[in-house]
Amino acid sequence: MTIIETVDLKKVFRSVVRRPGLSGAFAALFSREFEEKVAVENVNFSLQEGEIVGYLGPNGAGKSTTIKMLTGILVPTSGVVRVAGIVPSEHRQQNGQNIGVVFGQRSQLYWDLPLRESFELLRAIYDVPRDRFAQNLRHFSDILDLDRFMGTPVRQLSLGERMRGDFAAAMLHDPKIVFLDEPTIGLDVVAKEAIREFIATMNRERGTTVVLTTHDLADVERLTRRIILIDEGTVIYDGLLARLREEYGTHRILVVTLAENYPDVEVEGAQPNGRDGNIVRLRFNRHEVAAETLIRRVLDAYRITDISIEEPDIDSIVRRIYTEGYNALPAALPI
């Protein structure tokens, strides 16, 4: 069943043009010029209930703007949004009951209150039955290890603790849909894994629909197969992540630390991709040359102390699509 649907969604922001310098600042007191910036345009997608989708794109691509329209915070300039059958900006409160939101860069917990009291307040806000509340809290505490800092004011929590608190807060009222906007940003590996495990568990056990924006490809690979790629405000890809990687993530980087100071490092099948002292980066296409072959060539020609392979991250894939253009991938297959 379709739970989220957008049709020709568009949002335009109007902002004041700032002229440079002191004279510009004074001039702005008397006359103002406005410029319009299209944040998103022609955004069309739909999500099935229980699906997890990665909503990806470079900074400023319009990810957050889309999320804010889906949560009812921003009113679309034109187009249609439906979330669980509701137009969010028109029925903000009803939509609020259906959704849970986590912004990685912004806590929705109450800053001055201990975590436990934030949860109590959320129970009152969402009218969660007390037994359900207690059950959820116990369950989340087990997965996210919240007990250690339940009584600590939110402002004293570490980022990892705060994020775990934010996740529990977003899920306390059993939302049908959760929006996660860069939920693992700035976290260490342990905290990241705890968060990913929590998202996967909620999706598996409760059938929660998840929209995830992130710059961390590992989040996406761990959690979802489908991604929607947005750039400059429009959807440029909607389909399987594996396929996008297959088509565009073709280049890897072989990072070699040399044991001696060789003036020029040349290896057949790879292009130099920067050098920092004895660390040499070699870019290669994995369809043209196997990593194994390339490593053997390096070992035959040079004495080295270390070697590693960098996988393409989503940013570099996006960057590649952006610079080379999104060409002729056949129409995306829905999952």
């Binding site: 069943m1 028109e90 029925h91 409160q93 009803q94 307040l121 009152a124 806000i125 009218d127």
Partner: peptide, 28 residues
């Protein structure tokens, strides 16, 4: 599918907001 019916007004959240504000001010 959920319908856009406005849920009945509940006083409880607002009483809680008020109480939390008192508690917050008292910390300073």
């Amino acid at each position: 599918m959920a319908l856009a019916v406005r849920p009945p007004f509940r006083l409880e959240p607002y009483l809680e907001f008020g109480k939390k504000a008192i508690a917050r001010e008292a910390t300073y």
